[in-house]
Simulated assay, not measured.
Amino acid sequence: MTTMTAREFNQDVSAAKRAAVEGPVVITDRGEPAYVLLTIDEYRQLHGDGKDLVARLSMDEEYDDVEFEPAPLQVGLKVPEL
Rank of each mutant, 00 (worst) to 15 (best):
K17D: 07
E42G: 06
A19R: 13
E22W: 00
Y43P: 00
T2A: 12
A6E: 08
D64E: 15
V75D: 03
R7D: 08
T2G: 01
F68D: 13
V21M: 09
D64S: 14
D64Y: 09
L53Y: 10
R56T: 02
T3M: 10
A19I: 05
E22R: 11
P80C: 04
Q11H: 08
G23F: 07
G50H: 12
L82V: 10
A16Y: 11
A19Q: 08
L57H: 09
F68A: 12
L38E: 12
R7L: 12
D12Q: 10
L73R: 14
A19W: 06
E81H: 14
R7Q: 11
A34V: 02
D60V: 00
P70G: 10
A15F: 04
Y35T: 02
V79I: 11
R18P: 00
S14V: 12
E62F: 03
A71R: 14
A34G: 02
R56C: 01
S58W: 07
L53D: 09
P72F: 02
A16P: 10
E32F: 08
T28S: 13
E32L: 15
A55L: 04
L73F: 05
V25N: 05
D64F: 09
L77D: 05
V66S: 03
M1A: 05
L73M: 11
F68H: 15
S58H: 06
E67H: 14
V79T: 14
V75T: 09
A20T: 07
E32Y: 13
Q45Y: 05
M1H: 05
V54W: 04
D49I: 03
Y63V: 08
P70L: 12
N10Y: 07
L53T: 06
L82G: 13
A55H: 09
F9V: 00
K51N: 15
D52H: 02
Q11Y: 01
L37E: 00
F68I: 12
M59V: 05
L77V: 09
E8W: 00
R18H: 13
V54D: 12
L57G: 04
V79Q: 13
D60M: 07
P24Y: 09
P72Y: 04
E69P: 01
T28M: 07
T2Q: 13
R7Y: 02
S14P: 00
A19Y: 05
V36L: 11
Q11K: 11
Y63M: 10
P72N: 07
R30P: 00
D65C: 07
L73T: 09
R7P: 01
L57I: 08
D52E: 02
R30V: 04
P80E: 08
P24F: 08
R7N: 08
E32I: 15
A19L: 10
A55I: 00
D60H: 10
V54A: 15
V13E: 11
T39E: 07
L82W: 03
L82T: 11
T5I: 05
G76R: 14
I40T: 06
